[in-house]
């Protein structure tokens, strides 16, 4: 997958617009969703996603392939998000690096069949979380990036990423307990 990306990137760097179009098709879903989780408005998210791809095209000659293309692309998206929402960077940095040295991975949690109602309720709660949490959740659970990759994309310390995700889960757990009471 990454090799295929690299091949398309090399072709796009030589001016092959069809290759770049393939990259857009492949990554537009995640780029749009990441932008949407950050800004909250679909029209603004589309505008931001468009701008991200245009900037990626312009910056493509500088892409040397040290990082994965998607990580590099998401970094462009988050930088644009930071420019539009200065408080996003502030909120993310404010998580600090306390507590979590051992965040349990979701694969460790015994998955039980949740009721549709609970799931829908929690999805709605995720949508209501502040954008800083939503961005972290989107990168971790939708884009399936590792903690290290998220730290790289958001230009944050690894501990801050872990703390942010830990707190997001804690908030959701609290909401669930409030609902059940």
């Amino acid at each position: 997958m990454a090799d295929n990306d690299l091949d398309l990137v090399r072709r796009a760097q030589k001016g092959d617009m069809q290759a770049f179009e393939s990259l857009v098709v492949k990554h537009q879903q995640f780029v749009f969703n990441l932008a949407l989780r950050a800004v909250g408005d679909p029209r603004e998210a589309e505008d931001l996603a468009q701008e991200s791809f245009v900037r990626a095209w312009l910056a493509l000659p500088n892409f040397r392939g040290q990082a994965q293309f998607r990580t590099w692309l998401y970094r462009i998206v988050t930088n644009l998000c930071y420019n539009r929402l200065p408080r996003l960077r502030r909120d993310l940095s404010a998580f600090g690096e306390d507590q979590v040295s051992d965040v349990p991975d979701e694969t460790d949690v015994v998955a039980s069949v949740e009721t549709d109602q609970t799931r829908k309720f929690l999805h709605a709660q995720i949508n209501n979380l502040p954008e800083s949490y939503r961005v972290l959740i989107s990168l971790r659970y939708q884009e399936e990036l590792s903690y290290e990759e998220i730290a790289q994309v958001l230009n944050l310390p690894l501990g801050t990423v872990k703390t942010g995700l830990f707190r997001a889960k804690e908030r959701l757990r609290e909401k669930l307990e409030e609902m059940e009471e």
């Binding site: 998955a111 949740e114 929690l122 999805h123 971790r140």
Partner: peptide, 9 residues
């Protein structure tokens, strides 16, 4: 609760 949150995520 952990399990439900993990499932939702």
């Amino acid at each position: 609760a952990d399990s439900a949150v993990a499932d939702a995520l």
